[in-house]
Design a protein around this nucleic acid. Structure first.
Length: 276
DNA sequence: CTACCATCCTGGTTGC
DNA sequence: TGCAACCAGGATGGTA
């Protein structure tokens, strides 16, 4: 799915067309995505003004003047497209359509339908089952080496798997975990509990660095992600290891090449010389 | 606790 | 060229 940088890119694209605007029309073109679309979805949002547009981990949180919050997860293949005028015909996987009082059209297109939306009262947001268990935001100042080390302590699972666990740190996915471990010089196979002290400092630094760089690049366009204006993100050109198996390691003079392994069913990419 | 697996879907790529 | 198997950025719940 879109990971944190891609969702943040979508949020930034939506800001100018949504924040402060009223939804003039909201249509769900099918009854379900990953989960059923809430009853009265369109009716609850139509005529409401967007007061705030937040992101938590990989979730978009759209606050309305009614007190309702739209929780929106893009799944693995979800795309948000914005047309400020002259929207082209709807396409096959355009599942939800929003139109604003200014005439902007926003479409949620999701071929695999792993995405979902839910509506919750703002007071209950933190208790929502999808939100309540999330770990710290990796770009928050409070997410530091101590915070990470504490959450990894005594865990025997490989660090790769631990970083994909959204209760450890929220927002990383398969791409940025490989990238962050590369910059930290840590093997994806290393037992998570051994990431303490200096290693934790390196890993936190690497996580923040790679996420910030990816956001600045508009995310990564591998298969599905596009910026909401339709442009491709370009961080995929800056991957150090992801999807680069067999290529030379960009970070050291080692003679080896980038290895691809499978951990808990997902591909991992790393340099065996540089990452220990 | 941990590791592993299947599952929800569609579509692009790979290999025969 | 056809076709089937496999793979993909996620997250959960079940099993052993």
């Amino acid at each position: 799915m879109p990971e944190l940088p891609e969702v943040e890119t979508v949020r930034r694209g939506l800001l100018p067309v949504l924040e402060g605007h009223i939804l003039a029309r909201v249509v769900a073109r099918r009854p379900d995505l990953r989960f059923p679309i809430p009853d009265g979805f369109g009716q609850q949002l139509t005529g409401r003004r967007v007061t705030r547009l937040d992101r938590r981990a990989k979730y978009l949180l759209i606050h309305f003047d009614s007190g309702t919050v739209l929780i929106w997860h893009l799944g693995m293949s979800g795309r948000v497209l914005i047309f400020e005028q002259d929207a082209p015909p709807e396409e096959r996987h355009d599942h939800i359509i929003f139109e604003t009082d200014a005439g902007a059209v926003i479409r949620f297109n999701d071929t695999r339908r792993f995405g979902f939306v839910d509506l919750v009262d703002g007071n209950g947001l933190e208790a929502h089952p999808m939100i309540a268990k999330l770990g710290p935001e990796p770009l928050d100042e409070s997410f530091d080496a101590q915070a990470l080390a504490r959450r990894l302590k005594d865990r025997k699972t490989p660090i790769k798997a631990a970083l994909l666990d959204q209760t450890v740190v929220a927002g990383l996915g398969n791409i940025y975990v490989s990238e962050a471990l590369f910059y930290a010089g840590i093997s994806p196979r290393r037992s998570a509990g051994t990431i303490q002290g200096g290693r934790a400092v390196k890993l936190v630094t690497a996580i923040k660095k790679v996420l910030k760089a990816a956001i600045a690049a508009g995310g990564s366009s591998l298969r599905d992600h596009r910026q909401p204006n339709g442009e491709l993100g370009y961080f995929q050109h800056n991957f150090a290891v992801y999807d680069r198996q067999g290529q030379r390691c960009p970070g050291c003079d080692c003679t080896g090449s980038i290895q691809q392994i499978v951990q808990s069913g997902r591909s991992t990419y790393f340099c065996t010389a540089r990452q220990r």
